[in-house]
Design a binder for these strands. Structure first.
Lengths: 148, 148
DNA sequence: CTTCAGTCGTTCGCTAGCGTACGAATATCG
DNA sequence: CGATATTCGTACGCTAGCGAACGACTGAAG
């Protein structure tokens, strides 16, 4: 029976939190020498691999709220890594585009998610990985249904 | 083969993040009417169930950094829910204690972690839950070994 | 007894998450 | 066409995570 301390210390949920925070720490440490955050890196990845992207579309792809992305984009613009142009067809939209400086920096950056995934999961039984993924996916869906 | 977009969208790690953020959203929404955060609630839980606790010990129990806990405790003290007294035996330590106002508030609060766990995991096969927990636990251990 | 190393809490600056509210721009409906 | 609804980006305030640095305090080595 799950009393409070069990849930708080040793449940799937508690370990999901610990895993997320620990992998975030490794990811951020990997990028720290370049002064780039985890989500900033994802924005650059998208711009490098898929080209200029409307800001709203970026938010949908990265599953990040408008308000959150707005701050992240501001940082990247301030660092001259990304430009933010108005879409002539819809003045509400902003098109994000990587700059030459941004491309230059990109070529130096490691892939922090690949590093973390390699450390965390290499050699783990793939059936177990699939089960874990399914449990987390189901749980997330249930939470979303409850919220929405 | 795990290319970038796979890792970024559909891996165990990506779902752990989504699960964590979604359960955090539900937990915070549950507590919002009382103006209490998720980690603030954990501090109160500890003080109610285990009595006065040194701040450093609180940090260890909740696995929260000193700097993070410092801010959380400040908030609780500002709201008059918790007091922070110097330990006479060691002037560096601060002993945390719930106030009468805090106790009164506590009796009104729901258990947001129990709510989230119920929504997320009730009815899920317990062997799958155990597998998921083990995968996340192993992954966290591997990350910590790599970092440390 | 003094110095030196370690601990504890705090502060600062950063990342990044959320909700709310707002203006500007667009789309839709009557 | 004009009023209304919606969308987009932003700003503000909040939670909460980290590292680094600092003062106060303690304890241990000499």
């Amino acid at each position: 029976m799950p009393d409070g301390s069990e849930e708080r210390n040793d449940s799937v949920g508690a370990w999901a939190k610990k895993y997320y925070l620990t992998s975030r720490a490794l990811t951020e440490a990997t990028l720290r020498p370049w002064g780039i955050g985890r989500t900033q890196w994802l924005v650059l990845w998208q711009l490098v691999h898929e080209g200029p992207t409307p800001q709203r579309e970026m938010g949908r792809l990265l599953e990040v709220e408008r308000a959150t992305l707005s701050g992240i984009v501001s940082t990247l613009v301030r660092k001259r890594l990304v430009t933010q142009e108005a879409d002539p067809r819809d003045q509400r939209q902003r098109i994000l585009r990587i700059t030459d400086v941004g491309k230059q920096l990109w070529d130096e950056l490691p892939d922090p998610l690949a590093v973390a995934a390699e450390v965390a999961f290499s050699g783990i039984d793939s059936a177990d990985l699939a089960t874990a993924r399914r449990v987390l996916q189901d749980a997330t869906r249930r939470l979303n249904e409850h919220i929405g």
